[in-house]
């Protein structure tokens, strides 16, 4: 069966539209940026609310610090910048001024992962989840499509506390049109019993495609969309470990420290099962487009299928009760 290629969306667009809605509804809303009016899609916001678009210039430490100060003054600041510079350049401000001070700052990380493709590792953000996952008080969200991006922003606005959101530029299909978005809860996009694929953001479509192919081969794969990296939905992760016995994680992030690590930490502590962690190998990426890099590192449906083969061929999972009984 073939279907028409689904429409792909740049999540920055729905981000920009939703932010304008929030600014219309709530005068506390301000956007703060580091000269990224264009790349953060804030031009229309700037036209509509010129006083509430604060461009501090190319100065990420001041951008985040001033965001914390604006929150102290009762504003709800959306601090927008390309993810590598927001997180890398201003990490200590995120730690001290936002997370430790627990200010009501919304950190909007544009074009995360390797979305900037050929611009290279300086412009990639495949460390952000590892860095930020270790900061108490910070909620870390990775929406997968326009619907989730919008829901995540609406939630962040209501929530009184610091939030980090990855806002992707890579074209993504609608993957969650009928699944309610709940912070702190993984969404089950496919039910399954033989293994679980856990994805977030741009990797959700690869997980779904792999699950479809596995189903055609008679393997029942569960797919979890883990849009909240922190706090982690431990119940969903442990249910996957218990009920399916094998877990594959797939993320647009270094294999160390991100989604896969978060899942593994929980699994190893409470219900160890075989896992495969797919992501950027621990090396600086070679030159290539985002699509090329996804292929290069196996962050694709094929990569998931390969990992599934390995897990299915390996020792019988712990959940079957006969560990080590079968080998390939």
């Amino acid at each position: 069966m073939t279907t028409a290629a689904p429409a792909l969306h740049d999540c920055r667009k729905v981000f920009a539209q939703t932010l304008i809605e929030l600014a219309e509804q709530d005068p506390r809303t301000v956007a703060v940026c580091n000269d990224s009016v264009g790349s953060s899609n804030l031009k229309e916001f700037a036209g509509r609310f010129p006083d509430r678009l604060i461009n501090v210039g190319i100065a990420e430490q001041t951008m985040v610090g001033a965001g914390a100060g604006l929150a102290n003054g009762g504003r709800v600041p959306y601090v927008c910048a390309a993810s590598p510079f927001l997180t890398g350049r201003a990490l200590e401000q995120i730690k001290a001024d936002v997370a430790y001070s627990r200010t009501n700052v919304k950190l909007c990380a544009m074009s995360p992962g390797f979305a900037y493709g050929q611009l290279g590792p300086t412009h990639h953000s495949v460390e952000d989840l590892a860095w930020l996952r270790t900061l108490p008080e910070l909620t870390v969200l990775v929406p997968a499509d326009p619907a989730e991006t919008r829901e995540a922003l609406l939630w962040a606005h209501e929530y009184d506390g610091p939030v980090f959101l990855r806002i992707g530029r890579t074209g993504v299909p609608d993957v969650t049109p009928h699944v309610p978005f709940r912070v702190g809860k993984a969404a089950t996009l496919r039910e399954g019993t033989d293994l679980t694929v856990i994805a977030a953001g741009t990797t959700v479509p690869a997980a779904l495609e792999a699950a479809d192919k596995l189903a055609a081969a008679g393997v029942s794969a569960r797919v979890l969309n883990l849009s909240t990296i922190k706090p982690l939905d431990e119940d969903a992760v442990l249910a996957a470990a218990r009920e399916t016995g094998r877990i594959i994680t797939v993320e647009e992030h270094n294999v160390h420290g991100g989604l896969g690590s978060a899942v593994a930490e929980t699994v190893v502590a409470h219900h160890p099962v075989p896992m495969r962690l797919l992501g950027v190998a621990d090396e600086f990426t070679p030159t290539g487009s985002a699509a090329f890099l996804a292929e290069h590192f196996g962050i694709t449906a094929e990569g998931v299928l390969h990992a599934a083969d390995e897990l299915l061929d390996a020792a019988t999972p712990a959940s079957a009760g006969t560990p080590g009984a079968a080998t390939s």
């Binding site: 501090v56 001033a66 401000q93």
Partner: peptide
């Protein structure tokens, strides 16, 4: 605001002063 690492106060103060001005 929580300080200790140096060079954090003036950026945060820019934010509180901006909020007052707004």
């Amino acid at each position: 605001t929580n300080t200790g690492p140096l060079g954090h106060g003036v950026p945060v103060a820019v934010g509180t002063a901006l909020a007052a001005k707004l």
